[in-house]
Amino acid sequence: MTVYVDDVLTSLLGFCCFFGTIKFIKFIRFNKSLIIFVQTLKYVTKDIISFSFMFSIVFMSFLALFYLLFNSNIESCSSLLSTSQMLFEITLMSFDATDFTGADPFLGPFCFSIFIIIVVFICLSMFMSILNDGFHHVELNSIEDQQILSYMLKKFLNWTHLRRPNVEETYEIRDSRMHSQYVDPIENFPDKIDQLLEALDRVY
């Protein structure tokens, strides 16, 4: 009983450490790459969930197929857990095809080829397409937080003289100062009209 409780507490501690570490993302949320990553995951969440259901059905179908066909001939298919592990390794392109050939000269290579075509080529291509579409959508949108941070950082460096402004920034600063000293008369025209009308009201 004590060992079981210790295992449960260790598992809970692992989850707490995981979620606690994930929260550190908030401290670096102004990083451009991280913002794109988070926004991409938010954008493709629904598509990923739909894809996960579809992939689970396909994977469970192949799991049943490989387990029922090769459980007595291939050691890695002796149980459902080991069969699923083997299929995941095949998905990651880590496999030994000679086991299937030795188990059955026709069904082995045939089932293996179908799994490679459907899961590795089609399903993984769909998954990458979903992520790629979300990435391009997020990349095209303007990232305001990154722009705000860049503006604040640039102003701070200029204020502390840690960074010298370039020629364009120098002209912008000079123009803003000139504009603050000499206001365009056209901008004051509505105020002058209001003052004129008030003066006419006082006279009449």
Rank of each mutant, 00 (worst) to 15 (best):
Y4K: 15
M126Q: 08
N188Q: 14
I143W: 05
T101I: 14
V183F: 04
L87M: 02
Q85W: 07
K154E: 00
K26N: 11
L124S: 08
I148H: 10
V38N: 06
T170W: 03
F106T: 11
F30H: 10
F37P: 00
F100P: 00
Q39E: 06
P165Q: 07
I173T: 14
S61G: 14
C16N: 11
F59M: 08
K46E: 00
H136G: 01
E168A: 13
T83Y: 02
T40W: 01
I143E: 01
R163C: 04
E144Q: 08
A199M: 06
K32N: 09
M152S: 07
N188A: 09
E144Y: 05
M86Q: 07
I35L: 05
Y204D: 05
C16V: 12
T160A: 05
Y182A: 09
S33Q: 14
A97C: 04
P185Q: 05
E198N: 14
Y182M: 09
M128E: 01
S113I: 06
I193A: 10
I35K: 14
I116Q: 07
S61Y: 13
M93D: 02
I114P: 00
F127V: 01
S150H: 10
I49N: 09
K46S: 10
M178T: 11
D133K: 15
T10W: 01
I48F: 04
